[in-house]
Design a protein around this nucleic acid. Sequence first.
RNA 1: GCGCUUGUAGCUCAGCAGGAUAGAGCAACCGCCUCCUAAGCGGUAGGUCAUCGGUUCAAUUCCGAUCAAGCGCACCA
Length: 564
Amino acid sequence: MKQKQLVAQAIVDATEGQLSLDEVMSKIEVPKTYDLGDYAFPTFILAKLYHKAPQQIAPELVEKISGDAFDKVQAVGPYVNFFIDKKAFSHNILNQILDQKEAFGQQDLGHGGNVPIDMSSPNIAKPMSMGHLRSTVIGNSLAELLKKANYNPIKINHLGDWGTQFGKLIEAYKLWGSEEEVRQDPINTLLKYYVHFHQVDEEHPELDDEARAWFKKLEDGDKEATELWQWFRDESLKFFKSIYAKLGIEFDSYNGESFYNDKMDEIVSILEDKNLLQESRGAEIVDLEKYGLNPALIKKTDGTTLYITRDLAAALYRFRTYDFVKSLYVVGNEQTNHFKQLKAVLKEMGYDWSDDIHHIQFGLITSGGKKLSTRKGNIILLEDVLNDAVDLAKKQIAEKNPDLPNKDQVAEEVGVGAVIFHDLKNDRLNNFDFNLEEVVRFEGETGPYVQYSHARAMSILRKAGQIDLENADIAGLQDEGSWEVVRQLANFPAMIKRAVEEYEPSVITKYAIQLSKSFNKYYAHTKVLTDDAEKNSRLAMVASVAAVLKESLRLLGVKAPDEM
RNA sequence: GCGCUUGUAGCUCAGCAGGAUAGAGCAACCGCCUCCUAAGCGGUAGGUCAUCGGUUCAAUUCCGAUCAAGCGCACCA
């Protein structure tokens, strides 16, 4: 960043103030290839000003720039290319990383502001599928990134523990369930009832009425309904927590939908007070015509509540409890309309903080091109995928590094890491069709590739023995291979900023791959542990790579084993 | 029908808030372990950036239309 400003200033000086620093800064770019330098300024905008061809302007600018601050300044066609002083630059950046360690890249974007993140939110009595993984893993990474940028994230697991579905589940249990069967295998058994309910329901729609009646009882506090609900919820949560443990993810709150049960009356009365509620077809709605949205259904004909009513209560509760600067919802893009409605209703209620609510949407995972559906039994169990990945990692270790200590732990870290990394690799919004082989792939642009790069770096440092790098003379490096690595390292803080601003963990995933690539390339061509004058600088670079890779992985929620 | 999202190599995707010959990974083919972990490195091959228009000195990138795909469109979440 400082370097870029230096370049911009040089251009401003050379043009004798014809362009402002900001103008120049916005035009400066990074050339695609190494031989074109580190920064480039295209002279097209000067063509009109000078009434000359850009190709002619570029060399004239070069004449006026003093080369002291740079290795080289060169005109190539219409571009002025800058080669920065590699040795001085790498000296600075390596010392900075060695000094700051894992704090490198930390910055104050958030001033400590609270940011509740609604994430994961699986439904009680249903297994977790690959769909839940996305929300969980994206939310977790955003939390780490926000923390790094000095926000205070609050991870909220907004459990789907309320709604008509429980009426269905209770009805199904009453019809076909057995207590013993549920005790033995809670989730799968409950799921079985639920799927069965929907099958039978196709031909006997009257079951829906029964289910609605049960949910009504539940909302009214009926003893039997509440006990069953509590039981299902406890069993489910036990199971979910085992998966979160595997993923290494913890939550600050498990307040799910049921938590807002007693907080909805207030919402309804506020809506009434502000004359926002209307009756329509026997239900209570808020008209959102002026937002170009469908009306928000606040209460059903039978008086029970809906998803949005609870989300309104939750939004208000979070605002009061956390006084947030932003409130995030990591939820699939099929719910885009819901969040538009939510924000619109809050706006109508006079809460201007509704602008601070952001729906962090993500693409759909399909299987065989079809949407995953718990009801239709078309699901991919997260548990299975994680287990498959860990098994595969075990096989790889047996094959490639049979003498590795704590094999099981490493297999866990690599297998689970591969799955998480894969989910965070692409743009959030992309849909993807689930393909097990791809998810548990360990070669190419994958999590294990990054972990492996880190392990290699650690291995060199181990072999280097006890060297006090912090006090050693790190003169800097200037060869082409290390330069690629160094400029990647220097990019880390900017990447964090971008990832936070765009709520996009994939920025970090891609960055980690790029850094790994340049490091592996370097590794293949340069022997680090050669005794010469630059050895300390090389080791400093290796230590920096290890630190930044480990930190990148941490921000993604992936472990970085020292050996694998 | 309306709204949102997407359309780049056989497959999966990058392309940094328009710029210099469009990049990776996988799959295919060919090389590289007497040398810090070959989960690696290098090479070959593979593209009318969906189509048509517009803005601009410059468009894969911005705008519009068309076509195609996915998701959503009140008593599920």
